[in-house]
Structure formats: C-alpha cells, structure tokens
Design a protein around this nucleic acid. Structure first.
Lengths: 231, 231
DNA sequence: ACCTGCATTTCGGCA
DNA sequence: TGCCGAAGTGCAGGT
C-alpha cells in the first residue's frame, strides 16, 4: 500500500462526472491498483475512488498543466467499464509504501442471518405448535425468510428484520399476496418478527392482519448458549 | 490526519459484534477523531471503522495483554450510541501526522437527474403522441419523476430509475394509487422507465398493469448531443 | 431534527 | 456468473 499526501485536484468520468478542486488530500493506492482519495473528515466513504480491477498510470503533465503548476498526473482506468479517474498532483507532501500482506478478514456476529438461524431453531417463539418448514423459502419474487406451520397446520410466512420498518411490512405483504394465490399453500398467515418494531410498521402490519412478534436476541442467544453448554 | 501502519487486532461492539484477527493494517485517524481500519485490498469500505462524533483514547495494555504482545490499546467510543472499537496494537511500523485543512468538497453531475432531463426532452420515447406535463410532479407522498399524457390525452405517471428494481415498482404503485383517487387526473397509467429493468421488477410491474420501458442512455445523450452540435 | 430516496453504493448468498 | 437483498449502509434534499 502506498500512501501519498498531496495537493491535488481530481476528476472522475464514468457513470457520472465529478470534480474535486485543488486541496491537500490523502491518496491511498492499494495493492490491487485501486485508489482512494480521502479528506480529513467525513465518514468512511472517500471523496472519490476507483474500484478494482483497475490500473494506475503516472503520466507527464502537458505544457498547459505544467503552467498551471501540475507536477504529475495519475490516470486510473477501470479495466471493464473504462471509468476514469484523473488526479492532477501539484505538490507531494508525503510518499511512503508499506507491505501489508493478505488480510484474514472480518468475523461478524449478530446480523439478520444469525437471528434467522436462532428463530428457526426456536420456532415455537411464534406460538405453541409451530413447526419449521424451511428457511429462505423461494417464491417468484424472492425468498421468504422463514416458512412455518402453526398448530392448526396452516402456513405461516415470517419476515425477519433487525429493525422492523414499514418496508419490511410491504415486503411481507407482497409475499403473502403471491403465496395466497398458490392453492397448495393458501391460506398463508403473516408474521412480522424483529428485535424492534417501529409503531408505524406495527400499525400497518396489524391493519393488514399481520401478527407482530418482538424478538429478544440476547435471550435467544442465551438459550442456544445454554444448549451448547450441555455438551 | 494521522496515518499508522501497525500489526493489530480489532474488536467492534455495537449494533453487531465483529473481530479482526492479528494482521498488518492501516489505521487512519481523521481530524474529527474518527478511525478507519484499511487492508491492502477490497473496495473503499474499511474493514472496520468508527464514525464521528467519537473519541479516541490510548490506554496502557493490562498484564494479560502485555503478555500477549500488545504494546498499546486504542479505545474509540461513539459519543451517542456508545458503540466501541478496540484496537490492540502489537507493533507500530509507521506513524505520521499531516495537516490537510478543510476540503472544498465534491462537485457532482448526476445520472438520474440527467436521464430525467433527457426523457423530458424526448418524451415520445414513451410512445407516439406523448406530451410532457411536468417533471417532479408533486403529490402528497412525494414527487412523481415525470407526468405526461399519452396520445389519447390520458395521464401517464413515469417512475425513472437507473436500475429498475422492485422498490421502484412499489414506489410507482403508491403514486398511482394516490393519483387515481384524484378525479382531475384519473385514470392514470404507469410507466416504469430505466436503463435496465430486473426480471422480478418487470414481472411485478406488468402484473400490476405498469408498462416497462428500457432507456438507452447513450442514444438519448447522442440525440441531445446531435441537437447541441447544430448550435 | 427527522424522514425519504438515491448511490460510481459495497457485500454476501444462492440459484 | 448474475441476480437479489442487507448494510454498523452513507448522503443529500425536503419537511
């Protein structure tokens, strides 16, 4: 990885056009040739960038550019889309390179996938007599998070969210509409399950006959942990 | 901005839990105290990070940590959510600080806005006899991208996307539902226009009687360019 | 300040 | 590989 602090201006031409006026910034060149342009603020998103696969070429500035004070021009070209990022460097303040090696990568825990796994294992949280049919039940418009049956044997479609928002209710509504046209499944009841359900989402859901279930992630994990500890 | 290359492990506890095993990485400390952990690959997204507003505290490693080879611990805490990022540094390979100043920021020229402008100018791409009523036609739940009339004089609401996804169909459906309650407009037809329409989105749209139109951005731009060249 | 819609989204998962 | 949905999404514009 090469780190350059430079006074520069940047132009991007690709899916859109964008321009960064002359200022001092960090240019981060990664091992795969990709480039990030960072300022000293904002969030983790760079001001501008080029994603791999791409190639960086350092070219001599032409007369006009030299007259404008440009000492070096970087042209970063995407290999597929031909998007181009042009960095006009006026002054290099720092330039170092470092060997980082391959990163072992991030280990995550606590996302929707885990919640889904836990709920599948503890399906009776939806009510006594519930049975899991399958996770990620495919329909023509996408996968339903969990398909189950209730004590009476009726189908139950579960939409699972970390935070239950109106969007999730809409999504579940679409699935229910579609699934209820399938005579092998109909009638299908809907359950909207989340760690936290926004009042507006709850209102909309209940108005549509969708049951809301609030999940206690820590408790669900604790039960799983308890089981694990038995072995 | 402070740039540190270090062998380190990282733990994040907040909305989820995540862990980065020991490896050599770039730690970028921005002026607002925020921290980015970058590896030498991937895209612009850091392996891990803490967004502002947050505070960085360097603390002495305890005995266990020292025994494990930790020479320094950074604890980055978010000021509102109490999310925490802990960086356990085993070895510092590089450490420099740089004054960057405030960035003037990015100047963009967007796609959807341009696409909307082009379609407004070339409204007959929707079909012969179409006439533009107006762009960004306001409704109670938000602006419809384009309102037009067809050859028969009936209202046509156009939802415009770069990539036509199910969400866009939902959005248009909400607009149509509302507009069809307005006797001055009803009946309103729907057109879902995008550079590219996903099969599932097309299925959903056509199931709801919404017409799909695929736009050729380059061709549209070319026609505009042709006009422009005449002047 | 909150909400909504867009993004050069990026990222993972599965058909 | 392509498509689809989630993200510690970020970000801008409107209310």
């Amino acid at each position: 990885m090469r780190l350059v602090i430079a006074r520069c201006s940047v132009d991007y031409a690709g899916r859109l056009s964008a321009h960064l006026p002359l200022a001092t910034r960090l240019l981060m060149v990664k091992g795969d040739g990709s480039l990030l342009v960072h300022s000293d603020g904002g969030s983790y998103k760079p001001l501008n960038w080029m994603s791999p696969p791409c190639t960086l070429a350092s070219i001599e500035p032409d007369d006009d550019q030299q007259a404008a004070g440009v000492v070096e021009v970087w042209k970063v070209t995407h290999q597929k889309t031909a998007d181009q990022l042009v960095v006009s460097i006026h002054e290099v303040l720092h330039d170092t390179a470092h060997e980082l090696g391959v990163d072992p990568g991030l280990v995550k825990d606590g996302v929707e996938a885990h919640l889904q796994q836990l709920l599948a294992e503890q399906i009776e949280l939806l009510g006594e007599g519930h049975r899991l049919v399958r996770r990620e039940y495919m329909t023509a418009i996408g996968p339903v998070d969990i398909l189950a049956t209730d004590a009476s044997g009726a189908s139950v479609a579960v939409e699972l969210k970390r935070r239950g928002d109106i969007d999730g209710v809409e999504q579940l509504t679409r699935y229910l509409e579609l699934m209820n046209r399938d005579p092998r499944l109909a009638p299908v009841k809907g359950v909207f399950a989340a760690q936290e359900i926004k009042p507006q989402a709850r209102t909309l859901a209940e108005d549509r006959g969708i049951r809301c279930v609030v999940l206690d992630y820590d408790a669900m994990r604790g039960i799983e942990g308890g089981h694990a500890r038995l072995f």
